[in-house]
Each structure stands twice: as C-alpha cells, then as structure tokens.
C-alpha cells in the first residue's frame, strides 16, 4: 500500500512535469525540425536539426525590425516607468513629503490597478489619434508606461514601507542630502524590490498586445507580439517551424533579462541594519 502510494506520487509528479515542460520542448523541437519532418506522423524527437526557420524569420519576415521595435518600446517604457514609479512610491511612503496631490495620486494608482486595461482603449485612442501618433510606436510606449507606473508605485510602496526609517534618519544626520539619501541608501536597500518590478514591468511591456494591436497601425512599427500574430494568421499558418522559431526568438531576450535581474533579487539585504 505504501509502495503504491509512493508510485502514485512519482507518476503524478512525472505527469505534472510533462504537462508543464512539454509545450516548451515542443516549441523548441518544432523550431529546429526540417519542414519535411512536419508532415504526417511527427516524431517526438527530430531526426535532423535545421536553423532554416530562424533564417527565414529574419530574411523573409523582417523579424529583426520587430525585435528592435520591442526592445525600444520595452526598454524606454521601462526606464521611464522605473524612474517615475520608484520616486513616486518613495515620496508617497514618507511622511516628510507633504503635498496636496498625494491623495488623488493614490486614488489614480488604485483606479488604474482596478480597471481592466481595455477600459482605457477608447480615451487613449481618441487622444493618440488627435495627437497624430497612431502611425508611430509612441502609443505602444505610452500605454506601457500608463500601466507600469501604477504597478511599480503600488508594488514599491509596500516595499518602502518595510524599509526601516531609522536608517534614513541616520543618513540625514550623517549629512546626506535628500538625493544622496535616496541614491546611496534607499535605492541599494530597495534593489531586490526594484529588480522584481523591473522583471515584471519588462515582461508586461515585452508581451503587451491589447494596446499595440489597436494603436500601432503601421507594420513597420510592429512589436514581436504583433509580428507573431501575423505569422499565425496569414499565409504562414501552416508553417509551424516559422511560428515556433518566432516564439523561441521572442522568449530569448526575456530569459536573458530575467537571468540578469535575478542577481539583484537577494532576500534579506537589509539584514543586520536594525534590531528585528
């Protein structure tokens, strides 16, 4: 009975691993499988490997432009969102910063977090249209900023609230100006939180589709999610190798970014700072 229980656990574990890992494996396998192996009965392991889908992706589909567009939109929106979001969160959590807009600002953050992103499409469309921005990448960039700033503020507020204020008082007495205090004490201590929001915000911007499909009208400004959608829906519908290669290429920069940002996700950075 005991042996059966253990076997059942192992079996369930294997099934769960397969369910979660298999789609990724299949995507990778399809991206390197020659076209002639994709007809009829498809084997689990490709009998030969090819990079032709990746080559086609860049030569025929101009994927490098989509990659560049995505990097531009994600990194620029991330930089803006981080600078404004982290600063705003710090100002909102510290009582020594008093200003009238504090409450409305908190309310705005809550509203943006509560409402579904699609709720903003009509006002944003009208706005971008009147500004004549629909033929550019700027709407995609601004909409990422619109969603990411409230998210960063919301996340970092709770992070800053947990940072011991005595350390900041101590730094002020040590002679730190407000800016020195923020850059030399607060930011290093908030590094794990900033790394976490950086990863999540980058992922959002990288994968953003809802706003891009509505606001980005020129194919030359398409980001990766839009380009992938066209690979799926046009003449290449049956070209699974191309679609899989596109999928792999869209994941690689994210993986690299996550691995980089993860170095800063160090738990207990403030250990020993104050008596717990």
């Amino acid at each position: 009975m005991k042996l059966f229980g253990k076997s059942a656990k192992i079996f369930t574990g294997i099934i769960l691993v397969l369910v979660s890992v298999f789609p990724s494996y299949w995507l990778l396998a399809m991206s390197v499988r020659p076209m002639d192996e994709m007809r009829g009965r498809i084997s689990l392991i490709p009998s030969s490997l090819t990079l032709e889908h990746f080559r086609n992706l860049f030569t025929e589909k101009d994927f490098s432009r989509a990659l560049a567009n995505s990097l531009q939109v994600s990194l620029i929106s991330l930089a803006f969102s981080l600078v404004f979001g982290v600063c705003a969160a710090y100002v909102l959590t510290r009582q020594r910063f008093r200003f009238r807009a504090k409450k409305p600002f908190n309310f705005w953050i809550l509203i943006v977090r509560i409402l579904p992103p699609v709720a903003f499409t009509i006002p944003l469309y009208t706005m971008f249209n009147r500004l004549g921005l629909l033929s550019t990448k700027i709407p995609a960039l601004l909409s990422c900023i619109l969603i990411n700033i409230p998210f960063i503020v919301w996340f970092m507020v709770s992070f800053f609230q947990r940072l011991p204020e005595d350390i900041e008082k101590s730094a002020r007495i040590d002679g730190a100006s407000e800016w020195q205090l923020f850059t030399r004490i607060v930011l290093p201590l908030a590094a794990p939180g900033i790394a976490a929001v950086t990863m999540l915000s980058f992922l959002y911007a990288w994968n953003e589709y809802t706003y891009s499909i509505i606001f980005v009208q020129s194919p030359k400004n398409y980001t990766i999610p839009l380009t992938l959608a066209t690979l799926n829906s046009e003449d290449s519908l049956t070209n699974f190798g191309l679609v899989a290669a596109g999928g792999i290429m869209s994941v690689l920069p994210v993986l690299a970014f996550v691995v980089f940002a993860q170095n800063y996700l160090i738990a207990g950075l403030s250990g020993g700072a104050v008596k717990e």
């Binding site: 011991p164 005595d166 008082k169 101590s170 730094a171 002020r172 007495i173 700072a273 104050v274 008596k275």
Partner: peptide, 20 residues
C-alpha cells in the same frame, strides 16, 4: 536648520546601520 548642518551625531536604539 537641516539635520546635516547641525553638526550633531545620533545613535539609535535600533542601531540603524547601513546593511549594504
């Protein structure tokens, strides 16, 4: 006068050291 210009030093109950 701002704290940094008062030429004072303070020791806190919680130590308040810079952990990094």
């Amino acid at each position: 006068v701002e704290p940094q210009s008062r030429n004072i030093a303070m020791v806190f109950q919680s130590y308040a050291l810079y952990p990094h």
